[in-house]
Simulated assay, not measured.
Amino acid sequence: MARRSAEPANGSAPAARQVPMRDFSRSLPMSLLRAREAVMRQFRPSLRQHGLTEQQWRILRALAAIETVEVTELARTAFLLGPSLSRILRDLEARQLIERRTAKTDQRRSMVSISEKGVKLMASVAPSSEAIYAEITRRYGVRKLAELQEMLGELEQSLAGLGASEEAIAEE
């Protein structure tokens, strides 16, 4: 089977190459997504063995770090959209991995915490999770991993206010 050339018949460069932007594969968002995917590929089999999705695990991890949290704050902490979080919370609640109750101060707000069963599940996942972290650290290096986490934190901080004024205007 003959491959067709991506070059136009007139010999000019394809339209995509005329866009004055860095190469797609070298864009920061794509680099971060590729790195995230490489990391998550290591964790997914273990999560699947325990009947968890990445998002469910992210919520349990966030809840394990705090006593109780309001649902909208949990959405921000776990980087999930409200509708997705609602569905995931329903699933986790049905499995009795979380507990949800109405806030005493505002009946419209829902508070969430990890249940004892959720803590036990996390304890069963923890050894394989830590083994995966150990292997990532062994392959990438303790120093480089610490530097990467520090640099990512610095990147996040340096961009924290960027675009905030446009978002505030759009919300008004």
Rank of each mutant, 00 (worst) to 15 (best):
L159V: 04
P8L: 08
M122D: 02
T68G: 04
A65H: 07
D106Q: 10
Q157I: 05
S27A: 13
L80F: 02
S158Y: 06
R139Q: 09
D91E: 15
R3M: 13
G141A: 04
K144V: 14
R22A: 14
L148P: 01
R4Q: 10
A170I: 07
A134W: 02
M21N: 13
V69E: 01
E171L: 15
E147L: 12
E167R: 15
A16I: 15
E37H: 15
P45Y: 04
L155R: 04
E73I: 09
Y133M: 08
I132V: 06
G82Q: 10
R26K: 15
L92S: 03
L63F: 02
R26V: 08
V119M: 10
E37L: 14
V71R: 06
S129Y: 11
E147T: 11
L47H: 00
A13G: 08
E150M: 08
F43R: 01
I132R: 00
I59L: 05
R76K: 14
E172M: 14
L162I: 10
A170W: 06
Q49D: 14
T77M: 12
K120E: 13
K104G: 09
I136W: 00
A16T: 12
A38E: 14
S31C: 15
I88T: 10
L148I: 06
E130L: 06
A94F: 10
R44C: 04
E167S: 12
A38F: 06
M1S: 14
R22V: 12
L33S: 13
A94H: 14
L52F: 03
G118P: 02
R44S: 05
K104C: 06
G82A: 11
A9K: 09
M151R: 01
K117A: 12
I136R: 03
E73Y: 07
Q18G: 10
S115R: 00
M1N: 12
A170C: 09
V125S: 01
L63G: 02
I98M: 04
E116C: 06
R138E: 04
V19E: 07
D23P: 02
T105V: 11
E156Y: 12
E172S: 13
A38L: 12
Y133S: 02
L97D: 01
I66D: 08
A164Q: 14
R58C: 04
A164I: 08
L89K: 00
T68H: 09
M111Y: 01
S128E: 05
I88D: 02
P45N: 03
A168F: 10
S5G: 07
L121A: 00
L89R: 01
I88P: 00
S86W: 03
D106A: 09
N10D: 15
R61L: 13
R3F: 11
M151W: 00
G163E: 03
R26P: 04
L121N: 02
G51H: 05
S158I: 06
A9V: 08
S115E: 02
K144Q: 15
A2Q: 09
S5W: 05
R76F: 11
R95P: 03
P8S: 05
E70A: 08
R100G: 01
F24L: 15
L63W: 00
G11D: 05
Y140V: 11
Y133G: 04
A103Q: 09
T102V: 12
L60C: 00
A35R: 12
V71S: 07
T53L: 06
G153I: 01
Q42N: 12
M21H: 11
E7W: 13
Q49H: 13
S124M: 11
Y140P: 03
Q157W: 07
L121R: 01
A146N: 09
V71P: 01
